[in-house]
Nucleic acid binder design. Structure first.
Length: 604
DNA sequence: TTAGGGTTAG
C-alpha cells in the first residue's frame, strides 16, 4: 500500500491525535516506513505541543532511518538545546553511510556549544559539497559569531556566491552582538536591499548599545521609507523608549501596535508593560498587564519588578501571590529577585526573610548570588549592617562585587566609616574598572570630612585611568528627548535654563533649602563647593521641564546614575514650591516627588 | 512524496 494514502491530515494539534495516527499506521504495517513515520516524528519533535521523548522512542523503532529523519531530529535538538545529542546522532548517521543534504548542517552548526565543533562541521560542509549553499553558510556565520569569531564569520560571508538579505542581516546582527556598532551600521548601509528584519536588527543594535538617539533616527527613516512596523520593530522601539524614559514615544508605539492590529504575544505585551513601568506610569502598566491574554513568567516578573522599583513593596507581594494562585506559570529565580528587591526597597525586612525561605521550602529554588545580594541589601539598608555581614559570611559561594556593593551602599546611607572603608577597598579590588565603587567610597569619606582620603581615592582612580562615568539626565518634551550633563551648555535654550535654575534655587531657599555636599567627590575649598552642585544634570532637566510645561504638570526625568542627596532634597522642595509632581528614575529605582515628599521616604 | 535561515521583552 502506498504510504501517502495513510498520511495523517496535517497539522495535528495534539499528542493524543498523534498517538491515534501512530497506532493506525502500526496496524497498517507501516512501522518501518520512513515517510509515514516522519510525519509523526516531525510533529513530536518540532511542534509546541509535541513530545521529544516520544519522537526519540519512535526513532529507535525505525530499522533504516533516512537523512530526512535525522534532519528532523537535528532541528529538534537545536530547539531544545541538546548539542551533545546532535553530534552523537550525526555520527550515527554517518556510520549508517547516509549522506547529509542541504538541510543537515544549518541546525547542526547552530546547536554547537564549542567553537571547535563548528570548525569540524564546517569542514564537513565543504567535504559534502555545501560550500556554496546560502542556507548553510548563513547559519555558519551565525554559529561563528556566537563564539565571537569575527574573522571566521566574515570569511564565510565573503565565500557566499550570492549573499541574500539574510546573509547581510546575519552580518549586521553578528557585529551587533560583539558591540561593533559602527561596523554594523556600515554593513547595513552597504546592503543592496533591506527588509523589515534588517531594519529591526540595526535599530536593535543601537538600542542594545545604548545609542538611543541613533535608534530613534533610524526608526524615523524606516517609517519615511514606508517599511511596515511589525511586532519585532515595535518591541525594539519600546525597549528604546524604556531606555530613555520616553513616555510619549512609548505611548505612540503602543498606539501603533493597536492601530495595526499587531497581536500581543507574551514578549510584546511584556515590552509594553515594561515601558510603562520604567517611564513612570505604574498604573497604566498595571492596566495593560491585567488585560494581557498571554502572560509569561517574564510578564509577571516585569510587573512585580515595576512595583518594586516604585517602592510599592506590598503591591509587589500581592501580585506575586496572585501569580501563585493563578498557577498558569511557575515563579522562577527572577521572580524572587524581584520580590526580594521589592522588600528591600520598601523596608519590609521580615517579609524579605519570609520569602527568602519560602523560595527554597515551597518552590525548591536554591538562592543564587543575586538572591543573597538582595538579602544583604535588605538588611543593610535597614541599618542592620552586622546581620548583613553575617549573610555574606555564611553564603555558600564567594561574594562578588555586586553583593559587597550592596553593603557598601548601605554604609554610605548610614555613614559607617569603618565598615565602609573595609568593604569599599575590597569592592574596588574586585571591580577595579567600575568608577561607581570609587565614588561611593569617596562619598563615605567626604561625609565624615576625611578630605585626605577623598583625595587618595581620586588619585587611585587617576592612576588606574578609571574615569568617573559622566552623569546625565533626560527629559522628553514635545516628542524629543533632551539630554543634559552637569554644567552643560549645549542646549539651545541653555541661557534660559540656567536662569530658571537660579530662580528655582532662590525659591526653595525661602522654604529652607540648604545645599548638601555630602555626596560630592570634590577638592574645592568649603565656600566654593556649592557651585557644581547647582548645575547637576537633574536640576537642569527639571528647570527645562518647568520652562516648557504649565504649572501643575508632572515632570518625568531619567538619570543614568543614582540621584545625589542634594538633588533629592532640592526635588522635594521644588515639587512643593512649584506645585508639580516630579518623577525621577535613577539607576536603581523611582522617586515620586510630590508636595515636598518623596515616595522612597528617603530610603534609597 | 516530506522540511528550512536572519530580528523582539525580563
Amino acid at each position: 500500500m502506498s504510504s501517502c494514502l495513510v498520511a495523517p491530515p496535517w497539522p495535528c494539534s495534539s499528542m493524543a491525535e498523534v498517538r491515534q495516527h501512530h497506532s493506525l499506521l502500526l496496524r497498517l504495517g507501516l512501522s518501518t516506513d520512513n515517510y509515514a513515520m516522519s510525519r509523526i516524528l516531525t510533529f513530536c519533535s518540532l511542534s509546541n505541543h509535541g513530545d521529544i521523548n516520544y519522537a526519540l522512542k519512535l526513532f529507535t523503532t525505525l530499522p533504516n532511518p533516512d537523512t530526512f529523519v535525522y534532519n528532523t531530529l537535528f532541528k529538534a535538538f537545536f530547539i531544545c538545546d541538546s548539542p551533545s545529542l546532535s553530534l552523537l546522532f550525526y555520527s550515527h548517521m554517518l556510520q549508517r553511510s547516509l549522506t547529509p543534504n542541504s538541510f543537515t548542517f544549518p541546525s547542526l552548526v547552530r546547536a554547537c556549544k564549542l567553537q571547535q565543533e563548528v570548525k569540524q562541521l564546517h569542514a564537513h560542509v565543504l567535504k559534502f559539497g555545501f560550500g556554496a549553499d546560502t542556507f548553510t553558510l548563513n547559519n555558519l556565520i551565525h554559529a561563528y559569531f556566537a563564539f565571537g569569531s569575527l574573522d571566521d564569520a566574515r570569511r564565510v560571508f565573503y565565500t557566499i556566491p550570492n549573499p541574500n538579505v539574510v546573509s547581510w542581516t546575519s552580518l549586521v546582527s553578528g557585529y551587533s552582538q560583539l558591540g561593533l556598532v559602527d561596523e554594523a551600521f556600515h554593513v547595513f548601509e552597504l546592503m543592496p536591499s533591506k527588509n523589515g528584519v534588517s531594519w529591526n536588527a540595526m535599530i536593535a543594535c543601537f538600542v542594545k548599545n545604548n545609542r538611543f538617539r541613533e535608534a530613534f533616527d533610524l526608526f524615523r527613516k524606516m517609517r519615511v521609507e514606508e517599511v511596515e512596523v511589525d511586532r519585532f520593530v515595535a518591541a525594539t522601539m519600546l525597549s528604546a523608549c524604556t531606555g530613555v524614559g520616553a513616555l510619549e514615544q512609548g505611548k505612540w508605539i503602543h498606539g501603533c501596535v493597536e492601530r495595526n492590529g499587531i497581536v500581543l504575544d507574551s514578549k510584546l505585551g511584556t515590552a509594553i508593560v515594561d515601558m510603562y513601568c520604567k517611564c513612570g506610569c505604574l498604573d497604566k502598566a498595571f492596566r495593560v498587564f491585567c488585560r494581557l491574554e498571554v502572560k509569561g513568567a517574564s510578564s509577571w516578573n516585569c510587573m512585580i519588578g515595576g512595583f518594586a522599583m516604585h517602592g510599592r513593596g506590598e503591591d509587589a507581594i500581592r501580585l506575586f501571590r496572585e501569580m501563585e494562585e493563578e498557577g498558569v506559570v511557575v515563579p522562577d529565580d527572577i521572580t524572587f529577585v524581584n520580590v526580594l528587591t521589592a522588600c528591600a526597597h520598601s523596608g519590609l525586612v521580615e517579609e524579605g526573610f519570609f520569602y527568602f525561605r519560602y523560595m527554597v521550602d515551597v518552590h525548591g529554588i536554591e538562592p543564587n548570588k543575586e538572591h543573597y545580594g538582595c538579602m544583604v541589601d535588605l538588611l543593610a539598608r535597614a541599618g542592620r549592617l552586622e546581620e548583613a555581614k553575617k549573610v555574606i559570611y555564611e553564603m555558600p559561594m564567594s561574594p562578588d562585587a555586586a553583593v559587597l556593593g550592596a553593603l557598601l551602599g548601605a554604609c554610605r546611607i548610614h555613614g559607617n566609616l569603618v565598615l565602609g572603608e573595609e568593604v569599599g577597598k575590597r569592592v574596588i579590588e574586585l571591580d577595579p574598572g567600575n568608577s561607581g565603587r570609587y565614588v561611593t567610597l569617596g562619598n563615605i569619606y567626604a561625609r565624615c570630612g576625611k578630605w585626605e582620603q577623598v583625595a587618595g581615592v581620586r588619585k587611585l582612580m587617576n592612576d588606574r585611568g578609571v574615569k568617573k562615568e559622566p552623569g546625565f539626565s533626560m527629559i522628553e518634551m514635545e516628542g524629543m528627548v533632551n539630554e543634559f550633563v552637569a554644567g552643560g551648555r549645549d542646549h539651545p535654550l541653555a541661557e534660559a535654563i540656567y536662569a530658571k535654575v537660579h530662580e528655582m534655587l532662590e525659591a526653595i531657599r525661602v522654604v529652607g533649602y540648604v545645599p548638601d555636599t555630602d555626596d560630592v567627590l570634590h577638592d574645592l575649598v568649603e565656600e566654593e563647593k556649592e557651585n557644581p552642585l547647582f548645575y547637576h544634570s537633574e536640576k537642569l532637566a527639571i528647570a527645562y521641564g518647568l520652562l516648557k510645561t504649565k504649572r501643575g504638570e508632572t515632570l518625568r526625568v531619567t538619570k543614568n546614575l543614582r540621584v545625589c542627596k542634594d538633588c533629592h532634597q532640592a526635588s522635594k522642595l521644588i515639587s512643593k514650591v512649584y506645585d508639580c509632581d516630579i518623577i525621577i528614575r535613577d539607576r536603581n529605582r523611582f522617586h515620586h516627588f510630590s508636595n515636598g515628599e518623596c515616595s522612597c521616604k528617603d530610603y534609597w
